[in-house]
Structure formats: structure tokens, C-alpha cells
Amino acid sequence: MSPRIYLATTGRILAQLRADHRTVALIVAVPALLLTLLYFVFNDEQRFSPIALIMLGILPMLVMFLVTSVAMLRERTSGTLERLLTTPLHRADLVVGYATAFAVAALVQGLVLVSVAHWGLGVETAGPLPWVLLVAVVGSVVGVATGLLASAFARTEFQAVQFMPLFIGPQIFLCGLLAPRESMPELLQRVSDVLPMTYAVKGLQAVGSQGDPTGDVLRNVAILALFAVGALALAALSMPRQTR
């Protein structure tokens, strides 16, 4: 990797994001709107708050997976990636540049989402609110990394979208949102142990129930970061120059 090329790549992707208002709205506004809709669906703050806290780890990961998988595939289908790779740009520069640019977007997304949840919808936590933001942002970065990895195996934008149920669906079922993981069969518990969304949920549940969740949060955030690094490394290795 070249620091100069990496920074130039990050700047280019950020500029593209700023110019794409629909994508910015999808990243920043849609998760908050969905959480607000869920508030009115439950119409009960006591039932809503625990679910809403978990959704702060799920919605960002889901949205960022979708956006980045389609965005990277568009680079390939348009021929942009093939042209870029004729320059000194390395695949790692591109993948890490994408991850950094979308991490900035994830920070904005997390700030909006956590603000709406806490001050707009009354979601309370036993632990400090910045821990919620940290888990939400790192979870978003995992969504970015897995989206980039999924895009390497898709030929069209429609195929990239089709990967979302495969990558995200099982995680939603097994992360502890619909049922406690402890009540699941042992096999499903073992599967959930290797899915990143599980650790986003565990980190947020720790913030929700503990006054000082520092140890639990940092442990789960570290595991999420390892997932992100691994997915980015695989994405850099498997990314084709173009889609035929």
C-alpha cells in the first residue's frame, strides 16, 4: 500500500459520496426513519427500548453492506476499476480507501441514529452513550467490509443485492434479536459465535444493562474489528479487475 494513493482514493470516494445525495440519504436518514417506524409499531417504550438498542447494531451493518457492495460493483461494471488498476493503485489501496471513506459515513450515520434513538425516541442505557456509538460505528465498518467481500463474487448489481439475505439474514435470526441465544440449540449457538452481528448485539446489550460495560464493550468491539480486517483482506485478494 502507498499512503499517498490510499489517501487520494479515500478522498475520491468521499467526493463521490457527497455528490450522491440518494446514497447519503440511504446511509444517514433511512436507519433513523426505520427506527422511528419501529417506535410507533411497538407503541410502548418499555418494550421498544431493548429492541431499539439492538437495532442500533443491526441497521447500520445492513445498510452499509448494501451500499458498499453495490458501489464497488459499479466501479467494476463501469470499467473504472480496470482503468484504476493500470495505475500504481493496488487492490489494498482501493479496498482500504473504500473502508475509510465509508467509515466516515458510518460515523455520521451513527451520530444521527444514536441521537434520534436517545433524545428523540427515549432509548435509555445503563452505560455511557458513547459506547453505543462506538459499537454502532464498528458494526457499520463490518458491514462495509463484508459488502466489499460480497461484491467480489457478484457479476451484476442485482446479484450483489441478492447476497444480502445470505450474509445478513442468518445473522439477524441468530444474533439474539428474535430469541435469546442461550435458548437456541447448541449447533445454532456455535454458528452464531462466528457471526459478527452477534458481537454487535452483545456489546449493545452490555451497554444497556451495565453501568460500567467497558470490558465487555471493548472485547466485542475488538472481535468486530477482527471480522472487518479479515473481510477486507479477503476482499483485496479476491477482487477481480472487471465484471464480464
Rank of each mutant, 00 (worst) to 15 (best):
V135R: 03
N43R: 11
S238L: 13
N43A: 15
V138Q: 05
R181F: 00
R155M: 12
S115H: 11
T10L: 15
G208C: 07
L178C: 04
P240T: 00
A19P: 09
V161D: 11
A126W: 12
E182C: 09
S183R: 14
L34G: 00
V221W: 01
L59N: 01
V201F: 01
M61G: 15
Y39H: 15
V104S: 03
V207T: 10
L94N: 08
A200W: 04
G203I: 11
G120Q: 09
G79L: 03
T100M: 12
A150S: 10
T9F: 04
A233V: 13
F167L: 04
A117N: 06
D20H: 13
R241F: 06
L53H: 04
V116I: 04
S140A: 14
L111W: 03
L59F: 06
R241I: 02
G211C: 02
V104W: 00
F40S: 09
R76W: 02
T10W: 14
A160H: 02
V138W: 01
F40G: 01
I54Y: 02
P240V: 00
P180C: 05
P196E: 02
G143W: 07
E124W: 11
T36A: 11
G57A: 07
L166H: 07
P213V: 11
G230I: 07
L129C: 05
G57S: 03
A154G: 05
A233E: 05
L66T: 06
F65Y: 13
L59T: 03
M197W: 03
M239H: 01
V161G: 13
T87Y: 06
P165Y: 02
L85Q: 06
L129F: 15
A200M: 09
A233P: 03
F48N: 10
V96N: 06
L226D: 02
R74K: 14
T68M: 02
L33M: 13
L81I: 08
V28R: 03
A228Q: 06
R47N: 14
L85K: 07
R244V: 10
A117P: 14
I223Y: 08
S49Q: 11
H90E: 15
F173D: 08
V141M: 14
G230M: 03
A105S: 09
V63A: 04
V201M: 07
T9R: 06
L66C: 10
L133T: 15
E45Y: 12
K202W: 09
F102M: 06
P180F: 03
L232A: 06
V142F: 11
P240N: 02
A19Q: 09
V104T: 06
L107Y: 02
P3Y: 12
A106F: 04
R22T: 10
Q210N: 05
A106P: 13
E186L: 14
T10R: 09
D93G: 13
M72H: 08
A19I: 10
G122W: 00
G215C: 09
A99D: 00
A233S: 08
L66Q: 09
G203C: 07
M1P: 12
F65N: 15
I13C: 00
A8Y: 04
V63T: 12
P170C: 00
R190E: 07
L7G: 06
I51L: 10
R155Q: 13
T146F: 15
F102N: 04
G57E: 00
V161I: 15
R181G: 03
L66S: 10
G176R: 06
L62V: 08
